[in-house]
Amino acid sequence: MGASARPRLGVFKFASCDGCQLTLLDCEDDLLAVAERVEIADFREASSAVLEGPFDLALVEGSITTPAELARIAEIRAQSKTLVTIGACATAGGIQALRNFGDVREFARVVYARPEFIQTLATSTPIRDHVPVDFELRGCPIDKGQLLEVISAFLGGRAPNVPTESVCIECKRRGHVCVVVAHGTPCLGPVTQSGCGAICPGFHRGCYGCFGPQDTPNTGALVPKLSELGMDPSAVMRVFRTFNALAPAFRAAGDAAEKESSP
């Protein structure tokens, strides 16, 4: 096989649902092509055969929520030439970052019979807050095509082609009818990064912002439109505090709406 000649891939999980790793398994035929080009050294969702580091490419899913994870991400970074974070948890703290807006000890007390056994941090934070990250691939979950592009770019020694434009441009390229203009449906598409293929508007739903903010997100201009379409400030706050609540633009919009909702 000449395994040693191939770059070594590691896929690692932190606080997450595994959905982004599953996207790699979901590549099916392309996964075979990936397996031919790289040596899958550590990918526990796929195989219990685990090899030691170092790794040429590490794909990291999940956010940092415990002291043990803090130590482990530092170790993975030290063993990896290129580290790419995948998904909303790893790039923006994920849905579990909603704890950052509450009291984590209170949550633990309500949920667990013996909260003193729970060792957790007060916050859920993206990987880049703790170690240098070479590329962040957004999405909840990530898009299969974009993941293959990132791997392909790594293998080719080039920058990945992952546009940071709005969801609207994907909607229009696909010929979808705008749900805001034609249906009066609130939608985060204009402030959200593309990559999902405009799935929700394609099914007459507003965008939920799964891929986080686009590169020039004018949330200040969109929020009055959301209000006009019937969302009160607490609804606006909630829509910005989902999978990418810690992404700076969404965080600011959510915080502003919270201020407005609590008199």
Binding site: D30, A33, V34, E36, R37, L148, E149, I151, S152, L155, G156, N161, E165, S166, C168, I169, K172, R173, C178, G189, P190, V191, Q214, T216, N218, A221, L222
Partner: peptide, 27 residues
């Protein structure tokens, strides 16, 4: 302005385009 591109996508004369190379994994 949302800088969302809707005006240019709906415009019948806007012609801006980008080209990209999409290599397969085997190169």
């Amino acid at each position: 302005c949302l800088s969302c591109t809707n005006c240019t996508m709906a415009c019948p004369t806007c012609f801006c385009q980008t080209t990209e190379e999409v290599p397969d994994l085997s190169a």
